[in-house]
């Protein structure tokens, strides 16, 4: 028996909107730790890892570890039917081939339930070690989204370089080239508007903008984004979910063969 009650249901709506274009089907894993997911895109160069910790739910009952295969587009369709202020409860019985999403309006005058069929998914789970990164950039998530969108109108790939001077996003295409430099800026009114760069080693990595643009669908989840980079290793783009957990995207760099 599984019953997870999330008062801020809009968080789950935003999570689905942020990952449904990158991944078609995924197993949601439920344990005493929380509600989590790890899934790769179809070409296996990008991965999403989601964690919603059990403490973030108003009510969290998960009698035994459960893995529920869901089509993310179908799940997003159902969650779109929840109001932004609704409380969302996820329910499943042991051995059932369905999951139920219950939506309650804040005043309790409208209660809906949507039952979705589960699916069997053979998923490959990757062991991702906690790593020390050469450079970590924290910046406003809207700024990162704007940069990825702007650069993708010029080129297909972005080179992200971190030096003492700041973080540089560069692209080249048929019509020309573009460079955007963001300097460390901590003298802002609101901490979330700051750009903070922690650098151990200079880093320069190239990525496909098609994927970074998918990642920025998570912008509504957090006002800041953290980009962790090490030379020759996949980048981690993390959006924290207030008090509850995170959505992390991993992307393989384009490297010389």
């Amino acid at each position: 028996m599984l019953e997870l009650r999330l008062v801020q249901g809009s968080l789950l709506k935003k999570v689905l909107e942020s990952i449904k274009e990158l991944v078609n089907d995924a197993n949601f894993d439920c344990s005493s730790t929380g509600f989590s997911l790890q899934a790769m895109d179809s070409s296996h160069v990008a991965l999403v890892a989601l964690l919603l910790r059990s403490e973030g739910f108003e009510h969290y009952r998960c009698d035994r570890n459960l893995s529920m295969g869901m089509n993310l587009n179908n799940m997003a369709k159902m969650l779109k039917c929840a109001g932004n202020d609704d409380i969302i409860t996820i329910k499943a019985d042991d051995g059932s081939d369905t999951v139920t999403f219950m939506f309650e309006s804040p005043t309790q005058d409208k209660i809906s339930d949507f039952e979705m069929k589960l699916m069997d998914i053979d998923s490959e789970h990757l062991g991702i070690p906690e790593a020390e990164y050469d450079a970590i950039v924290r910046m406003p998530s809207a700024e990162f989204a704007r940069i990825c969108k702007d650069l993708s109108s010029i080129g297909d790939t972005v080179v992200i370089s971190v030096t003492k001077e700041g973080v540089k996003f560069s692209t080249k295409g048929d019509i020309g080239a573009a460079n955007i430099v963001c300097r460390q800026n901590t003298t802002v009114d609101k901490p979330d508007d700051a750009t903070v760069i922690e650098m151990k080693e200079p880093v320069s990595l190239q990525f496909a903008l098609r994927y970074t643009n998918f990642f920025t669908k998570a912008t509504p989840l957090s006002s800041t984004v953290t980009i962790s980079l090490s030379n020759e290793l996949p980048v981690v783009v993390e959006y924290k979910i207030a008090e509850m957990g995170y959505v992390r995207f991993y992307l393989a760099p384009k490297i010389e063969e």
Binding site: L126, G127, K254
Partner: peptide, 14 residues
């Protein structure tokens, strides 16, 4: 020529 290797190139499957 630059190439994107799959993530299984970097991380082991569990």
């Amino acid at each position: 020529m630059r190439r994107q290797f799959p993530l299984t190139f970097y991380f082991a499957m569990t």
